[in-house]
Nucleic acid binder design. Structure first.
Length: 930
RNA sequence: GCCCGGGUGGUGGAAUUGGUAGACACGCAGGACUUAAAAUCCUGUGGCUAGUAAUAGUCGUGCGGGUUCAAGUCCCGCCCUGGGUACCA
């Protein structure tokens, strides 16, 4: 005796959530007899604001797929955890002294409570938290493996990471003359004797050039006043964002990851995975492979000096009218003439104090200085001037470019600005080089001696061949991607499993892992600019000091999907048998903002772990779906200036008004709840309202969801008012998963009404459970099988919004037929259960089943009910649809044609003449062309 | 600037291979039930023109062209918008 009311929903959802928790219904078993399916959500950072309605969007989609695959007989792994190291908790700790672990644990509890009441089928026994020592023990262990590895280009087809011991053995034997490795650019050639002559420190310094996790000098933004390193985001106009102190670019010893070794494999692997094309494209651009040529330009009046440039357009070499080198270029000092020295030095100083970010963001500003030096173009022996300018980056290519102002936008702008000559080398439709609206051309070569008349790609080939023949350069593949910095001057992160002995970095042995975070009294850097960990008293490894920086945010998230496979293993990061069964992630759902961060690093670590023999998968995530973002819709009330009167949105133009944010929870379909508004804030208590049609209508605007805009919608409220099933279906109904869309609850009643109507199919007017055991009619079967097929197709192509609609149509049709046959309703309950598990479980039980709906076999649709015996074809005449006729489905085309031609309507149109042709599209249309 | 999405009623959105555009839902209008309201159920609902009406005609998927018997869908040229990225030689 209960209808699908608020109280009943609450009872049902609690009952089943408790039941499933108690019976461990979601535990993934390592049952290798069944095919596996691994569905993963990007684990969240547990922020203090709690879960908002945007979070569950992707989680609901992945939960539907998990439950569906399970019903289809797969052994499903669907875990959840927390990316728990991060800046906000640390910042909060610096301000309040509250330990980040405490804040984080509290936030995680909130998240888990909120996630639980939405009814996700997570196997919570497999939860991981990256800040848990039992977890980061293995993050440290993986770091150690990467420290102990180098990239051997000769191993396998594309090269692979190998243990460093193999490298050492080879160095002992033959030095590095036979070694082809991805290593530092400045690695010298050494013999076995030289290697043996190194002391321990010398050997380690040399090995650092090869290790995949290595220490090296890198450029950082150093703020002396704050005593800390700043990220590019924290620097504005050459001064720190906080405090406005000067920031300098200095070199510092930092941990890095040699991700560049994997550039080619990261690029090629993209072709093997089912990811959204935009994400793949972003990764391709990030890796930034360019094939070109490096060649030397001799410096005029310096017989011994030459400048090496990198170019992808060697074909345009006859158009070179000057050269530009980066301010940091090593030859700047040597080649600058005395007359130009003052200007150059000043320019270099300014450039040094601007962060890379800034240099990039000021694309429009053209700056530079002439060095006074000249180089010789090896192709035509012309003398061209050498300039320095910060549009040339020291870190890319060789830090020097041959400038061709007639075919490169930046070179062109530079030449215009400093009045340098422009020589056209390409003949094309827009070859007027003096135009201001510059356009790079493509066409055939002109003014280019032996290249004249060739198209660009032929010319490149011919020119490169000549460069190599002259012995002045080589064909060269270049990548834009840099090695990844792997250290931060922060507290709340994984400590490195590294200590120093006589300045030599050494690994803490596996048996002594994890190196746990020490307690400290304050979480900020020390006065002397050391990282916070320097505050830890007596924190050392057998008297030797630990590395004091911590790992970056992406360390823990770059391998977590492996830990879910075997989360409690204390001996390995995951056992070999479990890794070989679960292997990789079949479906990964998350936001596209991680395209070049997390997703790239994860692929890198996965490949490295594979090389070292710990996992089998070359790629971690087979299929990726990006869910869109849910934005907030802020609501506004309009106060007439200087009064306590608020005017409804439609009438606001008649007054001088100030819009004020109103809490979205007081607004229902744009209508303000005036009583709630008056109570909301004391100064609104005596507010007056000018209404339209008896209502106060609010204005709205789409903005980011934020507390200060009063537009945050918390899923808890929806669950309280409508239940988890309605929330789940409504979020899916809102639109395509991939689309970003503003949150609104305008249509939520429709979804709720659907569920109630569905419930009513099983109940009579007095709320007694009644289902009929009669044999369904063909029409009823048709509805059932059509729905099952549609929903199945929709899930397979991740179109959840359309399957919600399909359920509604099905329910409406059954309602209007007053159909309550068991043979129809039972399969529908199963099909609905991935979307609305609680109501499905309750109805399943009422249908008399002892077993769980979670394990029911997914219904199969039967083609015989989907085939129409006859079909109503629209008949179109000259493309205009005029009449409809019925034909048997198996009628031959010729007969249909005859019938159509004989019909009165067609006769009238054709006036007895034979048509040019008759087009019959089976199942769609018959078209008569006159 | 470059790369990738998107633009369809009052609103969110359907339309899977070029084949009856607007499914489904919200909102709105009318009706039933009710003393009344809420809830629920039923009916209608892209614009314009004509008609008492059923209906008929006509326009219609950001704009301008094109291909086709047939275009939201394909091609060319624009406009607007969301996201990513940024001096990569």
């Amino acid at each position: 005796m209960a209808d699908y009311s608020k109280d009943e929903i609450k009872r049902i959802e609690k009952k089943w959530q408790d039941t499933w928790a108690a019976t461990g219904a979601y535990k993934a078993k390592d049952d290798t007899s069944r095919p596996k399916y691994y569905v993963l959500d990007m684990f969240p950072y547990p922020s203090g604001a709690g879960l908002h309605v945007g979070h569950p969007l992707g989680y609901i989609a992945s939960d539907i797929v998990s439950r569906y695959k399970r019903l289809k007989g797969f052994n499903v792994l669907h875990p959840m955890g927390f990316d728990a190291f991060g800046l906000p908790a640390e910042q909060y700790a610096i301000q309040t002294g509250q330990h980040p672990a405490v804040t984080t644990a509290k936030n995680i509890e909130t998240y888990k409570r909120q996630l639980r009441q939405i009814g996700f089928s997570y196997d919570w026994d497999r939860e991981v938290q990256t800040c848990d020592p039992a977890y980061y023990k293995w993050t440290q262990w993986i770091f150690a493996q990467l420290f102990n590895a180098w990239y051997n280009k000769k191993a396998g087809a594309e090269g692979k990471a190998e243990p460093i011991s193999a490298l050492i053995a080879e160095l002992e034997k033959n030095g590095n003359k036979n070694i082809a490795a991805v290593c530092d650019e400045d690695t010298p050639a050494i013999t076995a004797e030289q290697w043996k002559s190194f002391d321990e420190k010398g050997k380690e310094d040399f090995l650092q050039k090869y290790r995949i996790a290595y220490l090296s000098e890198t450029m950082v933004n150093w703020c002396a006043a704050l005593g800390t390193v700043l990220s590019n985001d924290e620097v504005k106009d050459g001064v720190s964002e906080r405090g406005g102190y000067p920031v300098e670019r200095i070199k510092m010893m930092q941990w890095s990851m040699r991700i560049t070794a994997y550039a080619e494999r990261l690029l090629k692997g993209l072709d093997t995975i089912d990811w959204p094309e935009p994400v793949k494209e972003m990764q391709r651009n990030w890796i930034g492979k360019s094939i070109g040529c490096e060649l030397d330009f001799a410096v005029s009046d310096h017989n011994d000096l030459s400048i090496r440039v990198f170019t992808t357009r060697i074909d345009t070499i006859y158009g070179v009218t000057f050269m530009v080198i980066a301010p940091e270029h090593e030859l700047v000092d040597k080649i600058t003439t005395p007359e130009q020295r003052a200007e150059v030095t000043q320019y270099v100083d300014i450039a040094k104090n601007r962060s890379e970010r800034e240099r990039m963001s000021e694309v429009k500003r053209i700056t530079g200085a002439f060095t006074g030096a000249y180089v010789i173009n090896p192709f035509n022996n012309q003398k061209v001037p050498v300039w320095i300018a910060d549009y040339v980056l020291a870190g890319y290519g060789t830090g020097a470019v041959m400038a061709v102002p007639s075919s490169d936008t930046r070179d062109h702008a530079f030449a215009k600005h400093f009045n340098l000559p422009i020589v056209d080398v390409l003949e094309g439709p827009t070859s007027d080089i003096n135009k201001d609206n510059f356009e790079a051309k493509s066409g055939t070569m002109i003014n280019s001696d032996f290249l004249n008349g060739l198209v660009w790609n032929e010319a490149i080939e011919k020119a490169v061949t000549k460069v190599e023949a002259l012995g002045i350069g080589v064909r060269k593949v270049n990548y834009r991607m840099r090695d990844a910095i792997f250290g931060r001057q922060r507290y709340w992160g994984e400590p490195f499993p590294v200590y120093f002995e006589n300045g030599i970095p050494k690994l803490v042995p596996d048996s002594d892992l994890p190196v746990t975070l020490p307690e400290i009294d304050q979480y900020k850097p020390t006065e002397t600019g050391e990282p916070p960990l320097a505050r830890a008293k007596g924190w050392n490894y057998k008297g030797k000091s630990y590395e004091l920086t911590t790992m970056p945010g992406w360390a823990g998230s770059s391998w977590y999907w492996f830990r879910y496979m075997d989360p409690n293993n204390e001996k390995e990061f995951a056992s070999q048998s479990k890794i070989s069964y679960w292997k990789d992630v079949d479906l990964y759902i998350g936001g596209s903002e991680h395209a070049t961060g997390h997703l790239l690093y994860s692929r890198f670590w996965c490949k490295a772990l594979k090389d070292l023999g710990y996992v089998q998968a070359e790629e971690p995530f087979k299929k990726l779906i990006n869910q869109g973002h849910i934005q907030g819709v802020s609501k506004f009330v309009y106060r007439i200036n200087g009064t306590h009167k608020f005017v409804s949105a439609g009438l606001r133009k008649q007054y001088e008004v100030t819009p004020l944010h109103a809490d979205v929870n007081m607004v229902d379909n744009d209508v303000l709840n005036i009583e709630a508004f008056k109570k909301w804030r004391d100064d609104f208590a005596d507010a007056e309202f000018i209404l339209e049609d008896g209502k106060y209508i609010c204005g709205s605007e789409v903005e980011k969801m934020s507390k200060s805009k009063y537009n945050v919608v918390n899923p808890d409220d929806i669950v309280t008012n409508y239940g988890a099933d309605t929330l789940r279906m409504y979020e899916m109904f809102l639109g395509p998963l991939e689309l970003s869309k503003p949150w609104n609850t305008n249509g939520i009643d429709g979804v709720y009404k659907f569920l109630r109507r569905f419930w009513n199919l099983f109940h009579d007017k007095n709320e007694n459970f009644v289902v009929s055991e009669d044999e369904p009619t063909r029409d009823e079967f048709k509805i059932l099988h059509k729905t099952i097929r549609k929903v199945e197709e929709d899930i397979d192509r991740f179109s959840f919004n359309t399957s919600v609609s399909e359920f509604m149509i099905c329910c409406n049709e059954l309602s209007s037929m007053k159909s309550n046959k068991r043979a129809i309703l039972e399969p529908l309950v199963i099909a609905l259960s991935p979307y609305a598990p609680h109501i499905a479980a309750e109805l399943w039980e009422k249908l008399g089943h002892k077993d769980s709906v979670l394990d029911a076999p997914y219904p199969k649709y039967d083609e015989q009910y989907l085939v129409e015996s006859s079909f109503e074809y629209p008949i179109s005449i000259n493309g205009k649809v005029r009449v409809k006729m019925n034909f048997a489905l198996d009628m031959p085309k010729e007969d249909i044609e005859k019938l159509v031609m004989a019909s009165e309507a067609v006769q009238k149109w054709t006036e007895g003449k034979a048509p040019k042709k008759v087009i019959i599209v089976p199942g769609k249309i018959v078209n008569v062309v006159l």
